[in-house]
Amino acid sequence: MAGESVITEELNSLLNVELGPEVYEIEKGMLKKFAEAIEDPNPRWLKEAPPTFPAALVPKALLNKLFNIDIPLKRLLNGTSDLEYLQPIKAGDVISITAKLTRLRQVAGAEGPTLFMFTEMTYTNQRGEVAVKGKNTYIKY
């Protein structure tokens, strides 16, 4: 057993509730700044988003809740990231992001309870096309 549950009612109430959309206008400068930060010199990334750019389109409503929720586990790590590309994200696009918590799993870790929080994000462009589907797992311990 993983000991006492750290999964509160507040956390449970977030399960499968879609939050958003949060809207980001994709400016050329954002792409350039991101490509410079990851030090990927490919000139393609001046016009088009590099693969991990969705990391910069943060679903704040969901993540603020997940990261600041009142549970005894304070430390946070990123566990996994998954991205599926359906349409390129380009400079000038307007991307709307919806996000939800899909699953919670508590396990007994070496340093006490560890909570895995599974999330899914959908990135939709201004034409209503899904550009990217994302999944991310966050770990609180």
Binding site: P50, T80, D82
Partner: peptide, 28 residues
């Protein structure tokens, strides 16, 4: 995410102009 960005760069450098990335995933 930054390490995954490096892995993404490795893949897109290899793919060149005519290849395309469909999925990318990483476990930290």
């Amino acid at each position: 995410w930054l390490t995954l960005s490096f892995l993404g760069q490795m893949v897109t450098d290899w793919l060149g102009d005519q290849g395309a990335l469909v999925k990318l995933s990483g476990s930290y």
